[in-house]
Amino acid sequence: MPPATKLRIRVDQKKCQGHNRCHQIAPSLFELDEFGNAHEIGDGRVPAAMEEKAWLAKANCPELAVDVIED
């Protein structure tokens, strides 16, 4: 198991409009459904090596739909 961090990501389905910026930045953290809307993969837990990408995904979402939660 790769070392996990205390970060979790979550995509707010009420806000996501399918810009796909998060998936473009971090395809290992976000998956896309048949309509192109993004979802966090699994429980949204962010591996240590992906922390920076998780914050970038949040910073680039035009709809403010990506949350990064620090447990």
Binding site: Q17, G18, H19, N20, G36, L56, A59, N60, P62, E63
Partner: peptide
């Protein structure tokens, strides 16, 4: 530029369907 929350494809429900 890494932090770039641009709105070139619009914002809200009318996000450009062809953005990809």
């Amino acid at each position: 530029r890494e932090n770039n929350r641009h709105a070139a494809f619009g914002l809200g429900i009318h996000r450009c369907v062809g953005s990809n």
